[in-house]
Simulated assay, not measured.
Amino acid sequence: MANVEVAESVSVIYSIEPSPFVSRDTYLNVKFQFEMLGLAGEYMSDAVSELGDMHGALADAYGPDGNAVEVRQWLLGQHSSIARSRGLNNWRTALYWSLSRSDEFCDGGFRSADPLAEVR
């Protein structure tokens, strides 16, 4: 699971959550491995890079009129493509789904993840 927070920057926090489709033992095993391998930090680092890479496409989708619907559609298209190639249990699949669910991110909040903001 990826949780998106938008403020002066965009934060993506990964976690493992229980599911009715997975036994408690399997959930606890996966959670233990997730924590021991430090995957939350690894995925967060990867997400920062991914946010930078997608910024131009999001800015184009948003356009001068601030079209949050187009941003959401672009994110959902990416989510669908990644889910087909990598599966639902993938950090990128979770990232694009969570970003698409964030009204704040889609309505211009993505600009907080502009990799060139410090340069301008």
Rank of each mutant, 00 (worst) to 15 (best):
E70Q: 14
E70F: 07
A68L: 09
E70M: 12
N67C: 05
L58W: 01
A83W: 00
A59D: 05
S45K: 11
H79W: 12
S80R: 09
A59Q: 10
E50T: 14
G56P: 03
A57L: 15
A83K: 07
I82L: 08
E70R: 11
S81Q: 14
M44E: 11
M54E: 10
V69M: 12
A57S: 15
L58M: 10
H55G: 11
I82D: 01
A68N: 03
P64Y: 08
D65L: 12
L51H: 00
A83G: 02
W74D: 06
S80E: 08
Q73S: 14
E70S: 13
G63K: 04
G77S: 12
A68T: 03
E50G: 08
V48Y: 02
A47I: 02
Y62L: 06
S49L: 09
G77K: 05
H79A: 13
L76K: 04
V71L: 01
D60H: 08
S81V: 15
D46A: 12
P64I: 14
G66F: 05
G66A: 08
D65V: 13
G63C: 07
G77I: 04
Y62C: 07
G63M: 03
S80F: 02
D46Y: 06
P64V: 15
V71F: 00
V69G: 07
G56E: 11
A59S: 14
M54P: 00
A68Q: 04
L75K: 00
H79S: 10
Q78P: 05
S81M: 14
A83I: 06
D46K: 15
V69E: 10
P64M: 12
L75P: 01
D60G: 05
S45R: 09
N67A: 10
A83T: 10
W74C: 09
H55T: 12
E50S: 11
R72H: 06
G52W: 00
A47W: 00
S45I: 02
L51K: 01
V48N: 05
E70P: 02
